[in-house]
Design a protein around this nucleic acid. Structure first.
Length: 491
RNA sequence: GCUCCCGUAGUGUAGUCCGGCCAAUCAUGCAGGCCUUUCAAGCCUGUGACUCGGGUUCAAAUCCCGGCGGGAGCACCA
């Protein structure tokens, strides 16, 4: 009873890390630098940061870039990923790059071959697969150390062709899960590594490299996706061979965002190269670069992932939840502004009027904007709001008008007309002095229109709410051209 | 097919380890109301769930067995 009470008092979103001792936790965030970090990566980052903070632990950033062939790293991505990590508040205590540590992996490979933990397998893949399926050893498995080391040298010096040999880890051939049996530790890859070129022709696979680095850097807890769950089982064999203790591991389940389609890194790289996207920060992409550009706040992303917690359950989440978190955080600092998308010019008969919309309805002290329409003047309204038959509408904060595509008539200022009788629409005076050209990049395309001249006082990076349209981040303002470019955040 | 993991409202999530305080938490969504010269904000109300079947027990979301459903892995990828 008492125990339960204590637990409730210190209740947090995330489960405790098993065996974690404050001040002695070491974790690593280990992406493959094949592109910038994505929203999905952010889950790992956020969870690591939360635990590091809770246990006053140490965080390593480790680039697991040991595949120059199928998932080659992108040289620029190393810096991008650091920036993305920093944006989320991550300050790694140490940064490691696997491709700089190849000699270390070689040493361990040799030690393993020497002690009979590893062996050089020269079976063709199909043959080996068959043997493995039947739980049988390959002919090279029990060869003496001298033969193993000779074969290993053949891999290193170019005698053996790519695919001709691979170093395998001795596991339990009878292991009930075939996936864990006799896995490959190092193989020959002749493609030059995008970062360090052709220095090496033998590369460790992730499970080998990562296992060794985790041990050498004293990692105590590993957090990773469920897709890597088998890695833990495989790597344990290696740890046993070397007499090491395996870190604690926790996994998170698969996440599918309703709104995001299938984005694989390799497909994206290709699509960007072909110009289907403007770049890695194209607002349509689920990269942190793109989200940052759109005005998503790191705190919102953290809150989102923290709310999903660390669970192995597979979930299908909605971006709406993230947007709600973000809205809460950006609304107070988003000054209001009128943006008329796809404007139609309408002549108004009748008296002129002035509007004084507040800069922020919840913060009257910030003041108001001012829009003026002269008698028998013209206004711009969004094409989509223009009724076919004349209809009474309220130009927000301005005046009630009876309006259709052919023209309108001022019925009186909005101040005169109380209640909710008329539908409210956004608008602008048709006056170059009071407006600017404005384009908004959205995930669906680019919206063209005009916006209030008050935008000219803003700067790149500022957030605004285009009333009745949505929140946007200002990307560029050009006072001399009287133009602005925004990126749509969300509504 | 084999192996492993996971099933609480529309979507997430707390509770499950240590059965009773759970006719089940919170958020989001949706609906309604209030406020309001935007609403996407704020305030209020409502909505809606323990995958199924057995078993153990005085008592099961919680423990056991089985079914069903979902996911992942089974690469000389990460």
């Amino acid at each position: 009873m008492l125990e339960r009470k204590e637990r409730e008092e210190k209740k947090t979103e995330l489960p405790e890390l098993p065996g974690a001792v404050a001040g002695q936790v070491v974790m690593r965030f280990a992406p493959n630098p094949s592109g910038p970090l994505t929203f999905g990566h952010a889950r790992g980052v956020v969870l690591h940061l939360a635990y590091i903070e809770r246990y006053k632990g140490k965080l390593l950033l480790r680039y697991d870039d040991t595949d120059p062939d199928i998932k080659p790293p992108l040289p620029e991505a190393y810096a991008w990923q650091r920036e993305d990590l920093a944006w989320l508040g991550g300050k790694p205590d140490e940064v490691l790059t696997a491709s700089d540590r190849v000699p270390i992996y070689y040493e361990h490979a040799e030690r393993g071959l020497q002690q009979g933990a590893l062996y050089v397998c020269r079976c063709p893949p199909e043959v080996f697969r068959d043997l493995k399926g039947h739980g049988q050893a390959c002919p090279h498995r029990e060869l003496p150390a001298a033969a193993q080391l000779a074969a290993w040298r053949g891999m290193l010096d170019g005698t053996t062709a790519p695919g001709g040999a691979a170093v395998r880890v001795k596991t339990d051939l009878q292991s009930k899960n075939p996936a864990w049996r006799e896995w490959v530790a190092l193989r020959i890859v002749e493609n030059p590594h995008p970062r360090i070129g052709s220095t090496y022709r033998v590369w460790p696979v992730l499970d080998f490299q990562s296992a060794i680095d985790d041990h050498l850097t004293g990692v105590t807890h590993i957090l990773r996706g469920k897709d890597l769950a088998d890695s833990s089982h495989k790597q344990r064999y290696l740890y046993e061979h070397f007499g090491w203790t395996y870190p604690q591991v926790m996994h998170w389940g698969r996440v599918k965002m309703h709104e995001f389609g299938k984005f694989s890194k390799s497909l994206l790289t290709e699509a960007i190269a072909k110009g289907e996207f403007t770049g890695w920060d194209d607002p349509r992409l689920p990269t942190l670069k793109a989200m940052r550009r759109r005005g998503f706040q790191p705190e919102a992303i953290k809150a989102f992932w923290l709310s999903l917690g660390l669970s192995e359950r597979d979930v299908s989440a909605s971006l709406q939840t993230l947007e709600a978190e973000n809205r809460q955080r950006i609304d107070p600092r988003s000054d209001r502004v009128f943006f008329v998308k796809d404007p139609v010019r309408i002549a108004l008969r009748g008296a002129g009027f002035e509007a004084h919309p507040p800069i922020h309805p919840e913060h009257p002290a910030r003041g108001a904007r001012k829009l003026t329409v002269t008698a028998d003047g013209h206004v711009l309204v969004p094409r989509s709001e223009v009724p076919e038959q004349p209809q009474v509408l309220r130009l927000k904060d301005g005046a009630n008008v009876r309006l259709s595509a052919s023209g309108g008539e001022v019925l009186g200022t909005a101040q005169d007309a109380g209640g909710h009788a008329a539908r409210i629409i956004e608008w602008l005076p048709d006056d170059p002095a009071q407006t600017v050209a404005c384009e908004v990049l959205t995930p669906e395309g680019t919206d063209q229109g005009r916006a209030e001249a008050s935008l000219l006082a803003k700067h790149a990076g500022d957030l605004v709410q285009c009333e009745r349209y949505g929140y946007c981040r200002i990307e560029a303002v050009d006072p001399s051209a009287r133009a602005a470019r925004l990126v749509f955040t969300h509504d």
